[in-house]
Design a protein around this nucleic acid. Structure first.
Length: 642
DNA sequence: CGTGCCGTAAACAGCA
DNA sequence: CTGCTGTTTACGGCAC
């Protein structure tokens, strides 16, 4: 019944103070964890999929490389007399059926990780990168998936091409670098389509035609004048030409050394010669080798095949580039879209890893999901929250404030508070702290450690974008908390009344929280993983008095302190209670939500060490580090924070 | 399952 | 009267 009035009221009075405060619409926002829209799921799924695809992709790449290399070796050997060693890969098989090679992909984020990231909306730059890569791979994959069969062929062609190219290089005819994928075949490849390629392939395999014309004189083999195809645009390349021979030999040697020698050869799989267009069957590897040397020696045909392959590669690369762009756009769209475009200060990796430096802007890719940046001034777009897939709300706070401590631990606030701070200031994300904690923080941050109600309001709106809306709701909550908690003491003042914090009371109240379950704490610790720095900071601070915990190390900016304090306090609470456990001290508090393991490598902090200090907490009255900045002292003003 | 905390909503009183 | 401030009660959700 009254709700309406209440909610709607949002605009009411208070608004004046914050100015923009009132915007919102339904106060209830999404208290129910509502959020997670289906979209999210899809996103996750997508990620999974991507992962797989990425694996595949990498696999393919690997294959390609492998295949080509051996071929080169082969060719060389042929020329030189057959030296090489086929060892190389066993993966050749994959050629036929790209399947398992997943293991090869090095640092691919696991689906779970991805999920976590998404859910928590925090992505570290690294993660994002990985993600991007995966997506890119995915895109590529998709594209290639359709032509998988064809692709195989193409790959083969490519092999040939490359082989030939290498040969040419070796002979000093060409200046292409081995690894160089982007071969100068642009004109030819640009718009090539599978069909075309196929045809090309056909031509190449069946006839060695025109190449002959060009054939210069070297070995007679190199009929192909790749130079025409690939004009040395780069002086450097030319240089290589001179050294090609060397290079090759090196390579060869290297490969020989590495490869064990077992009969696996990229061109030989399942008893069949994998040479493009070949398919000859062999009972044993030696036969195959013989065949390879005889049938697939360096000649025009091989050269032509190489050329085709090059084109294919080129094509793929182009495609990849396009898909990359697309991917970027997609990512950007999905992750950032939420509220508006705004200029979020940055990506906030908030949580991200402790390790990250705050720099971030670039570090974190454009899409750091987390944020939903709503600039202070910016009007939030309602939409975003409601459904945007990965909006901050949906991902993380979703519901009411931080649910208890446990939840707090998950808070997005990372050790690197500065980032968080910024994040909260601009993102419409609910801070993972209780009202009481925030209020306390606001008060402690003030120069005199006392604030009027209105000043507290201002602090909230200034520090958190989230509190720039639904004013009626949270203001009511603030008042409610002030009245309800003994730790907040109202003091009559000249200008009226101000609120102060009774640290002791404050500390008292938290005991129960997390302390109860050491296990939990522990989990949190580890899972959240405080960065080393943090833990260090933590310890240091503890040593001093507890309070400064976070502030010290990780926090640099004044404003940060505020958050730091908030966190700290929460920690203290938990800790003090859990002292016995010891574990709590740790970091648990780190609010790092998301990243957990990702970038952070937590070190097991020893819980016990910290305990002691906790007791001191009470002494804490002194305002911890708050003073750092006092941006706020005047009348609540306006954030200057950043 | 009971308990405590928290967040939210709302009624109400006092004051400017 | 209106609006802000402050108090209090109720309720639901969640974690322990």
């Amino acid at each position: 019944m009254m709700q309406e009035s209440g909610m709607e009221a949002t605009n009411n009075g208070p608004a004046s103070q914050n100015g923009g405060a009132s915007v919102e619409g339904g106060s209830r926002e999404g208290r129910p964890k509502s959020a997670t829209p289906s979209v999210e799921v899809t996103a996750v799924d997508l990620l999974h999929l991507q992962q797989h695809q990425v694996d595949e992709l990498s696999k393919k790449k690997q294959l390609l490389l492998q295949q080509q290399q051996p071929q080169l070796q082969q060719l060389q050997s042929q020329q030189n007399s057959g030296h090489k060693s086929p060892k190389a890969n066993d993966k050749q098989q994959s050629l036929q059926v790209p399947v398992s090679v997943a293991m090869m992909t090095p640092q691919v984020i696991t689906p779970q990780q991805m999920q976590q990231i998404l859910q928590q909306q925090v992505l570290s730059p690294q993660q994002l990168q990985v993600l991007l890569q995966q997506q890119q791979a995915l895109m590529l994959q998709q594209v290639s998936a359709q032509q998988l069969a064809f692709q195989q062929q193409l790959l083969q062609v490519q092999q040939v091409q490359q082989q030939h190219l290498l040969n040419l290089q070796r002979q000093g005819l060409l200046t292409i670098q081995p690894g160089q994928t982007s071969l100068p075949l642009h004109s030819l490849t640009q718009g090539m389509i599978p069909a075309e390629l196929q045809q090309l392939w056909k031509e190449v395999t069946n006839t060695h035609v025109k190449e002959e014309h060009n054939s210069s004189s070297n070995n007679g083999h190199r009929g192909l004048d790749l130079s025409s195809l690939a004009p040395p645009k780069n002086p450097v390349l030319n240089q290589h030409a001179s050294t090609n021979g060397q290079y090759m030999s090196h390579k060869r040697e290297g490969s020989t050394l590495e490869e064990p020698s077992h009969h696996s050869h990229p061109l030989y799989g399942h008893g069949v010669c994998k040479w493009p267009g070949c398919e000859a069957v062999f009972d044993d590897f030696h036969s195959f080798l013989k065949h390879l040397n005889n049938e697939h020696a360096l000649d025009d045909r091989s050269t032509a095949q190489c050329r085709v392959q090059m084109q294919v590669v080129q094509q793929l690369e182009l495609q990849l580039a396009k898909d990359k762009e697309r991917l970027q756009a997609m990512m950007t769209h999905l992750h950032v879209k939420s509220t508006e475009p705004k200029a979020t200060p940055q990506p906030l990796n908030l949580v991200s890893s402790v390790t990250l430096s705050k720099s971030a802007p670039e570090a974190s890719p454009p899409l750091s999901l987390p944020q939903t940046p709503t600039t202070p001034t910016a009007p939030l777009t309602p939409l975003s929250q409601t459904h945007s897939v990965i909006t901050a709300n949906s991902l993380h706070s979703v519901g009411p404030m931080r649910r208890r401590y446990s939840e707090k631990y998950n808070m997005p606030i990372s050790p690197d508070i500065s980032q968080n701070k910024e994040f909260y200031m601009n993102a419409d994300v609910r801070p993972p702290f209780t009202y009481a904690s925030l209020i306390r923080q606001a008060i402690l941050e003030s120069p005199e450690k006392q604030l009027t109600l209105n000043e507290i309001y201002n602090w909230f709106t200034r520090m958190f974008a989230y509190f720039r809306r639904n004013a009626a709701t949270w203001k009511n909550a603030v008042r409610h908390n002030l009245s309800l908690h003994k730790c907040f003491v109202r003091v009559e003042n000249v200008k009226g009344a101000v609120w102060t914090v009774d640290e002791i009371e404050f500390q008292k109240r938290r005991p129960q929280k997390i302390s109860g379950s050491p296990a939990l704490v522990k989990n949190i610790q580890t899972s959240l993983g405080y960065g080393p720095t943090l833990s260090a900071a933590f310890q240091a601070s503890m040593a001093e008095n507890n309070i400064p915990l976070y502030t010290t190390a990780s926090i640099g900016s004044p404003t940060l302190n505020s958050l730091a304090n908030a966190i700290r306090e929460e920690m203290n609470g938990a800790m003090d209670h859990g002292n016995s456990n010891g574990s709590d001290s740790s970091p648990g508090r780190s609010p790092l939500p998301a990243m957990h393991h990702i970038s952070v490598k937590e070190e097991p902090l020893d819980p016990e060490e910290h305990d002691g200090p906790l007791s001191l907490v009470t002494t804490a009255n002194h305002s911890p580090d708050l003073d750092l900045h006092r941006d706020y002292d005047d009348d609540q003003g306006h954030d200057d924070m950043l």
